[in-house]
C-alpha cells in the first residue's frame, strides 16, 4: 500500500495540475504564439530590405498615418466618455441607470459589420441624411469622419468596462469626504477620483487603443477602400494580401502586431514599476 500523501484542502492532485498547465501552454502556443511567429517570418521572407520597402510604399505609409489619426481621435473621446459614464453609474443614482449600463455593452454584442452598416444607413448616399450631407458638401462615409465614428462605436465599452467595477468597489466616501472638506466638484475629481482610478484608466485606454488600431469589420464597411486615402492598416493588409503581395501584407501586419506588443510591454512595465503604488490604491 502506498502511504497517503498529506494534501491541502484546495490543492489538487499533481497530475491534475500538470494536465492543466500543459493544456494552457499548448493552447497559447498554438493559437497565440504560432500565428505571431508566422506573421513575422512571412514579413521577413524576402529579407529586411524587402519588408522595409513594403512599409515605405506610399499607400502603406498613408494607411499607417490614417490609423494613427483615427486612434488619436477615437481613444481620447472614448476615454472621456468612459470616465463620465463610469462616474455617473457608480457615484450617482438616477432613473435609467441600468439601461445605460446595458447600452455600454452593446458594441460588444453587436457584430462590427452591422455597426458599420448602420452608419451607412444613416450617413450613406442612400441613407437618411445622405442627400442633405451631399447638398452641404459634407463627407462622412468613405472619409475620415465615418472611419472615426465606426471606430468609436466599436471601442466604446473598453474604458467604461474597466472603470465601473473599480469605481463601484471604491465607493463614494472619499469623494464625500473631499466635498465636506471644501473641495469643488472638479477639484474632487482631479485630486481624489482620478488618482484612484488612474491604473484602471490606463489599462482601459491601452486596450481601447489596441482595438482602435486593429478594427477591421466596421471600418471596412464605411471606408470605401480608397487606396492611399481611406485604407487603415488592417484594410491595407487585406488589399495587399488579395493582390498576392505577401511580403507587403505581412510587413504591414507585423507593424500592427508590433504596436500591440508594445502596448502590452508598456502595461507590464508600468505595473512592475509602480507595483507598490498600485497595491496601496487597491488595499483598504
Amino acid at each position: 500500500m502506498t502511504p497517503l500523501q498529506p494534501r491541502g484542502a484546495t490543492e489538487d492532485h499533481p497530475l491534475v495540475r500538470i494536465a492543466a498547465v500543459t493544456i494552457a501552454a499548448i493552447f497559447i502556443a498554438l493559437f497565440l504564439v504560432l500565428p505571431l511567429v508566422v506573421v513575422f517570418s512571412q514579413a521577413l521572407a524576402g529579407g529586411w530590405s524587402a519588408a522595409l520597402a513594403a512599409i515605405r510604399d506610399y499607400d502603406a505609409l498613408q494607411a499607417i498615418r490614417l490609423t494613427l489619426i483615427v486612434a488619436a481621435i477615437a481613444v481620447p473621446l472614448n476615454a472621456i466618455f468612459g470616465i463620465s459614464a463610469a462616474w455617473a453609474i457608480t457615484k450617482f443614482d438616477f432613473p435609467g441607470k441600468s439601461l445605460l449600463t446595458t447600452l455600454i455593452d452593446l458594441p460588444f454584442s453587436v457584430s462590427p459589420v452591422i455597426s458599420g452598416l448602420v452608419y451607412m444607413l444613416i450617413f450613406g448616399m442612400q441613407g437618411w441624411l445622405g442627400p442633405w450631407l451631399r447638398d452641404h458638401d459634407i463627407r462622412i462615409v468613405f472619409a475620415l469622419p465615418g472611419i472615426v465614428m465606426a471606430t468609436i462605436f466599436v471601442t466604446f465599452p473598453f474604458v467604461a468596462r474597466e472603470l465601473i467595477p473599480l469605481m463601484s468597489d471604491q465607493g463614494r466616501e472619499e469623494e464625500e469626504a473631499a466635498v465636506s472638506l471644501g473641495a469643488s466638484g472638479w477639484s474632487t475629481f482631479r485630486r481624489v477620483t482620478l488618482p484612484n482610478i488612474k491604473w484602471g484608466l490606463l489599462y482601459g485606454v491601452l486596450l481601447c487603443n489596441a482595438r482602435a488600431m486593429g478594427e477591421f469589420g466596421a471600418v471596412s464597411v464605411v471606408s470605401g477602400h480608397i487606396r492611399g486615402l481611406t485604407n487603415t492598416m488592417p484594410l491595407q493588409v487585406e488589399v495587399l494580401y488579395n493582390d498576392y503581395q505577401y511580403v507587403g501584407a505581412f510587413a504591414v501586419a507585423s507593424l500592427l502586431a508590433l504596436l500591440a506588443l508594445v502596448t502590452l510591454i508598456l502595461k507590464t512595465f508600468l505595473e512592475w514599476r509602480y507595483a507598490d503604488e498600485i497595491a496601496a490604491v487597491h488595499r483598504h
Binding site: E174, E176, A177, S180, L181, R191, H284
Partner: peptide, 15 residues
C-alpha cells in the same frame, strides 16, 4: 458649511 465629517470607515484618501 465647514462641517468636519468623520466617516465610519474613515474614507481617507488612500493614494
Amino acid at each position: 458649511r465647514r462641517a468636519g465629517f468623520v466617516f465610519q470607515h474613515y474614507a481617507l484618501f488612500r493614494h
